[in-house]
């Protein structure tokens, strides 16, 4: 398990990184925590002649409360999110998700930016970002631009970032004080990755759902936002029959494929049950109502 030969750069500024990406074109790739990239390199699934590390760029690891939302630096590692009071206060969904990603070793090294940019349909953070309605700040040759989570995930391992753009920051818009969230994950056997995952973000008002953000993991070529379920839940009092129907709508948005871990039918049934559970968990956080 030795990777093929590669060049390694670790510049200190994003401009330099963008420059290198431009220069080397398809031969180059950004290296963040390496938790997805290194296994691919070592098993020689991919060959990347030029690796450009983000590790020497300062100021890419932070979790800040700002006016328009919580801002998270792309190089923030999963375990920082897992133990952040700011995240705990505003986005219990992220906390719930972070603690279910991989294992502590991977979480200490793997970054939120890498998890999202990798756009693996089995990675957990893409659906969480869709549920929250996150925005991504990317920097390229002509400066920075913002991409909404909905526009970001294009296909398996494919995002709308250009090859020479770098994901710098994630903006998580506030959902208000009565907002709750939970991440449901049903793992494949002894794997960290899931048969199905569901991210649920809710804001509540007098016992009713004001707004819902729902997206699913491992259920198609990319993380999928469940718009029908979100629309249906808005304004509803979340009783059993409402959750049941919402779960049907979530399943309706899924596109699982059969593999050794189960048939399409099985995976949809897992998603249905997991969705009801996870919505229930988020709603329960709305104390008393």
């Amino acid at each position: 398990m030795n990777p093929p030969r590669f060049e390694y750069y670790a510049p200190t500024g994003i401009e330099e990184i963008v420059g290198l990406l431009k220069k080397y074109g398809d031969d180059a790739k950004i290296l963040a925590g390496g938790q997805s990239l290194l296994p691919l390199l070592k098993s020689r699934v991919v060959t990347i002649p030029c690796l450009i590390s983000l590790s020497e760029v300062r100021g890419l690891s932070y979790i800040d409360e700002r006016k328009d939302g919580v801002h998270v630096g792309a190089m923030t590692v999963d375990s920082d999110l897992e133990f952040s009071d700011i995240i705990k206060k505003h986005f219990p969904l992220i906390l719930d998700c972070a603690s279910q990603v991989a294992d502590p070793l991977v979480r200490n090294t793997g970054t939120i930016g890498g998890n999202i940019s990798h756009a693996d349909p089995s990675n957990d953070f893409p659906s969480v970002m869709l549920a929250i309605g996150a925005k991504f700040v990317v920097q390229g040759e002509s400066g920075t631009r913002e991409i909404s989570a909905e526009d970001f995930f294009v296909d398996t391992f494919e995002t709308s970032m250009k090859h020479d753009e770098v994901l710098k920051e994630i903006i998580l818009p506030y959902w208000g004080s009565n907002s709750y969230g939970a991440y449901g994950k049903f793992k494949k056997g002894t794997w960290n990755f899931s048969v199905a995952g569901v991210a649920v973000q809710l804001s509540m008002e007098s016992g009713k759902i004001n707004k819902a953000g729902i997206a699913i993991t491992s259920m198609g070529p990319k993380a999928i936002k469940c718009t029908e379920a979100e629309k249906y839940l808005a304004g509803k009092k979340p009783d059993d029959s409402v959750l049941k129907h919402a779960a049907e709508l979530i399943v309706g948005a899924s596109q699982p494929s059969e593999d050794q871990y189960g048939s399409e039918k099985y995976k949809k049934e897992i998603l249905r049950r997991l969705s009801i559970k996870t919505m229930g968990k988020a709603i329960k956080m709305d104390g008393g109502n």
């Binding site: 871990y261 189960g262 559970k277």
Partner: peptide, 13 residues
């Protein structure tokens, strides 16, 4: 044992 065979018909919610 295949995971599918461990799913009860009606879910206890």
């Amino acid at each position: 044992i295949r995971p599918e065979l461990l799913l009860r018909e009606t879910a206890v919610q």
